[in-house]
Design a protein around this nucleic acid. Structure first.
Lengths: 221, 221
DNA sequence: CTTCTTATTGATCATGCGATCAACAAGATC
DNA sequence: GATCTTGTTGATCGCATGATCAATAAGAAG
């Protein structure tokens, strides 16, 4: 007999097991999408009976919603952390666009897109989606407001502009999910667009074209 | 006895029946999404046995893909028709943004978003998505090229700019699917962004919606 | 009226899903 | 070593899906 077969899973503390389940759900979501999160699927990855997963979660909808929130919140915090280190709003906005458009986060983009659809039938998920969108918008809005204050930007209505930037980034990333070819210089064109929207001088964002910084994989365990 | 119960569906021409099925699938998709297209669901709406739907379609995947193509192609043609009547590229682009952002096509947007996700597991659908995206891009690209030629726009690389405009519009519409509040003047801000991207003068798109005349004169490159 | 083509039916199969719960056993406690 | 708490199992239910196909009957053709 192979020594890898295990008749029964080792007994663990509820906190440990719950963490294992959450992590398994996260991996499944990033690899196969939110709709691949099923009791049996998650249980198989943890190496446990399907009933146990159900025992740790009120229902699958909640597990899906929680997994979405975990993945997206981590990304938001990570990017917000990157921005903090930069001195000027212009640099922050440039970094924001560059980071979000560098193609290293397509797995997270796929989850966003799926969540928009799934939220139609999963109210818990829909609530999480709205919450996470608000969090993202707050990050961007802060940058825009700082830029207005420092006179680097010339626009009014920072909240709306922040929403628009997010929408544009999401749309372009979603597009890249299906068609990543055909468009050269995504970052440059987007920079021109955002410059027009925030009222910054043409070429002030991403001045030298696009110099790519290091990639950050969002799918590390 | 109610006279509305019908034991057996009236016999019809294959062409007629196929059209009925396609129309039912279209309605279901617009009301409940592409994933609500099931053999039994479509059959019930037509008033027919589920086996009949299966008899007219090679499989459900094909029905979903075909329904997507039908819905989206109709929209593209409709908007393209609107543009033809306008004389200048500036007006065409303005009309394009206005039309796509007026919120009257959110049901079609929902289908786009769902198709992006479903295309991951439905190759036929994925092919249709790419095809329809290309069709849309061609429409926009023609407008941008005309604008470059007439000197109303100042940009290079019309294909990429067209993709970007589409991506931005899709993203903002998808966002509106979940959150239609919080953003005032979607169209105006988008117009500013597109102006920056195509290199048109600030306020030249959607002139009526100009709420603010910017200051930093766009330094010409 | 009779014959025959074929549009239509509906039962059936295999599969997968979420949820439930009595029964089991691992491991801490005494 | 005996006891007991509780993490874990896996069979089971109800439901939904796509697909298949022999049987049926509508309606045109003769």
């Amino acid at each position: 007999m192979s020594s890898t077969i295990q008749k029964r899973a080792a007994r663990k503390t509820p906190a440990e097991r719950a963490a294992e389940i959450a992590e398994a759900a996260r991996e499944i979501a990033l690899e196969q999408g939110l709709s691949a999160i099923t009791l049996r699927n998650v249980a198989a990855r943890v190496g446990v009976a399907s009933g146990l997963v159900a025992h740790y979660e009120p229902n699958v909808e909640a597990l899906v919603a929680g997994t979405f929130a975990t993945i997206v919140a981590a990304e938001t915090e990570e990017v917000a952390g990157l921005l903090e280190r930069l001195p000027t709003p212009l640099e922050k906005l440039g970094m924001l666009l560059e980071t979000l458009m560098d193609g290293s986060r397509l797995d997270v983009t796929a989850i966003w897109v799926e969540a928009w659809t799934l939220g139609r039938r999963n109210e818990a998920l829909a609530a999480c989606v709205r919450e996470q969108m608000d969090a993202w918008q707050a990050v961007v809005q802060r940058v825009v407001e700082a830029g207005i204050e420092s006179r680097e930007f010339d626009t009014f209505d920072a909240p709306s502009v922040a929403w628009q930037i997010l929408g544009m980034v999401d749309g372009l990333n979603a597009q890249a999910l299906v068609r990543w070819d055909g468009v050269s210089d995504r970052g440059t064109h987007l920079a021109r667009a955002v410059e027009g929207m925030v009222g910054a001088a043409r070429g002030s964002l991403l001045p030298g074209g696009v110099a790519h910084i290091g990639r950050i994989s969002s799918s590390d365990p």
